[in-house]
Design a protein around this nucleic acid. Structure first.
Lengths: 184, 184
DNA sequence: TTAGTTTCTGACCGATCGGTCAGTTAGCGT
DNA sequence: ACGCTAACTGACCGATCGGTCAGAAACTAA
């Protein structure tokens, strides 16, 4: 269990997240790790397998956060969820951004399919679990992130609701957000 | 004023926004336009100049939306701003996403500097103009988008507040969002 | 020391990248 | 018909991409 494996994973994750998968070369990862490109491939076999090793744990983590909430709705632990959500975005430095900005060559990579499916689940979940105006307000910040992701999903051309419907939904939500709270 | 120039701009914008700048080849743009790679370069000179032509108008548009609000604060036209904001995100298909996911080769391109500066301005403006809890709620969705962008800016390693401060600010905002409104 | 295994590397491969250039095609005024 | 110009193309360039492979270097066990 040399440190090289773990260092490589960490370095690759940071680079993929910041510059994107297609824009990050194995040569650059190797230089940052103080190794040769051949050594990187020796440890992980291919660039795709390195990607799998780099972002797989992040997807697992988001699954852990999201799965129990989808089963039980949001009746409990709203605070914990949102804190965990933001922590996830910051801790993993939003490498979801990388999942989207993928090159044409990444269309059949399983881990990318998992990531895209997760983003859709997350956006739909956040949108579906804001019934009342008060809920919408409380989840405004999460909704904003979800809206951002939805837009990105649309830009990527993934399977998602028509853009007109998304726009209408966002405008409706925003209209309610802009209406001052009326306490009966 | 042949249609080729405008078609190329539109196609390039869509491809850059969906697949990212580094992952989009001139060959692919040429194929989508029904031209040869040489013709694309004949019209725009280089890939960078094509990028400039593709996203320049989008940056100008966001400047038009943001500039008057920065001068006059948010005392008026909150509704219009948020509607325009969402419209912008959807209309231009969030190609800001592309500004971030740039390769190392794009660090000195002026239009990219403009785009990055715009994202920072937008995030700071949205964060600064939510003083009260009610304001925070109303702008929750916009804040969410801003938070997402801030995270991405951090991931890109651009000049931004330390990530710990950003995290603390987000948690504070969320704590207030999660506190039910008390009407005195 | 010696043998065996793991780790690492440089040289090389085919493919593709952005970009250049000579030359062909097409459109238009005369 | 002609010539001029703008639009377009295929061939080619050096560089870099992900990936392969034979072999050197380093470490361990005896």
């Amino acid at each position: 269990m040399s440190t090289s494996q773990e260092d490589l994973r960490r370095i690759a994750l940071a680079e993929f997240a910041s510059a994107g998968y297609g824009a990050t070369s194995l040569q650059r990862i190797a230089e940052l790790a103080g190794l040769s490109k051949s050594s990187v491939l020796y440890h992980y076999g291919s660039k795709e397998q390195l990607l799998e090793a780099a972002i797989g744990p992040a997807i697992d983590r988001m699954d852990e956060i999201l799965a129990p909430l989808e089963r039980g709705g949001l009746s409990e632990s709203r605070t914990e969820f949102l804190e965990e959500f933001v922590d996830f975005l910051l801790q993993y430095r939003l490498e979801v951004n990388m999942f989207i900005n993928q090159g044409p060559s990444l269309e059949d990579v399983p881990v990318i399919d998992r990531a895209n499916a997760l983003i859709l689940r997350l956006a739909e979940f956040l949108t579906a679990n804001t019934a009342s105006v008060e809920e919408k307000m409380r989840f405004g910040i999460a909704l904003g992130g979800a809206a951002y992701m939805l837009c990105t999903v649309h830009a990527r051309g993934l399977d998602a609701p028509p853009i007109d419907e998304t726009r209408a939904a966002l405008v409706t939500i925003m209209s309610e957000l802009l209406t001052p709270v009326r306490i009966p």
